[in-house]
């Protein structure tokens, strides 16, 4: 099963804060520990550890890209059908009503980088759009002096779907950075903000998230699924500052 680690799990690992990182339960570790504690493997690092019940939240099954889901705070589809069928009698009409209550899970091929707070350059190696490329030889870096002593609030803004204002659903953020000593400017602390308009207002979702010193793809879960048109990653501290 997939779990989201909470702040309380951080004490188990001296490398950094585990809050928000996703982990998978490990059957073997589960057997060896008292029933209330759970063995997990952290997705970002492959480290296994045993966590107390208050140090994680259970996550639902991953939703495939593009799959339509009812809004997070909506009643279940079964419930909506049961309530509306005696009122409108037409299944087609209920399907139509339900279509307004559904959003697709984000599909990465539809995501675009709209803009960034600044950029060190805008070329083949360095641009906000490069953060959507699988090529590890490209990156985005904020402008020189944008982050004095490695502390600031630099951001990259993404639109989740091609149509302006169209919303999608997501719960996980994944990020790749170069490992030290190659990545002293890599983000170490960041958070997620969402909006339905590129100009905001942006609403912060979830706590500060911390990267580990690994060049693997790292993964965090937000506290709940998020439904929005735009996502902004706000980077507040680099590896050198930590």
């Amino acid at each position: 099963a997939l779990v989201r680690l909470r702040g309380a799990a951080s004490a188990h690992n001296a490398q950094g804060r585990l809050e928000g990182h996703t982990a998978e339960t490990v059957a073997g570790a589960l057997d060896r520990t008292p029933s209330e504690r759970v063995g997990v493997r952290v997705v970002s690092t492959d480290a296994t550890m045993v966590v107390e019940p208050h140090a994680f939240d259970m996550l639902g099954a991953r939703v495939p890209p593009g799959e339509m889901r009812l809004l997070h705070r909506c009643a279940s589809e079964r419930f909506v059908r049961r309530v509306f069928l005696p009122l409108v009698h037409h299944v087609e009409l209920i399907d139509h009503i339900l279509s307004f209550l559904k959003l697709p899970q984000v599909t990465m091929s539809e995501v675009t980088a709209v803009k960034a707070s600044s950029s060190a350059a805008n070329d083949r190696q360095c641009s906000a759009a490069n953060t959507l490329s699988a090529d590890d030889g490209t990156w985005w870096l904020s402008a020189p002096d944008s982050c004095p002593n490695g502390v600031g609030a630099e951001w990259v803004l993404y639109r989740l779907r091609p149509a302006v204002g169209a919303r999608a659903r997501f719960q996980y953020v994944q990020m790749k950075i170069p490992k030290l000593p190659y990545g002293p400017l890599s983000v170490r602390v960041f958070h997620v903000e969402v909006a339905d308009d590129e100009s905001g207002p942006f609403v912060r979702v979830g706590p500060d998230l911390t990267t580990f010193n690994t060049d693997r793809m790292q993964e965090w879960a937000l506290p709940t699924p998020v439904e929005c048109a735009c996502v902004r990653l706000v980077l507040t501290k680099n590896a050198a500052a930590c």
């Binding site: 060190a120 904020s142 982050c147 490695g150 990259v156 997501f170 953020v173 994944q174 990020m175 890599s186």
Partner: peptide, 14 residues
Amino acid sequence: SEASCIGFLRVGFA
């Protein structure tokens, strides 16, 4: 100074 910018290689949402 050298440590005055911040960045990353790649991002994903799921």
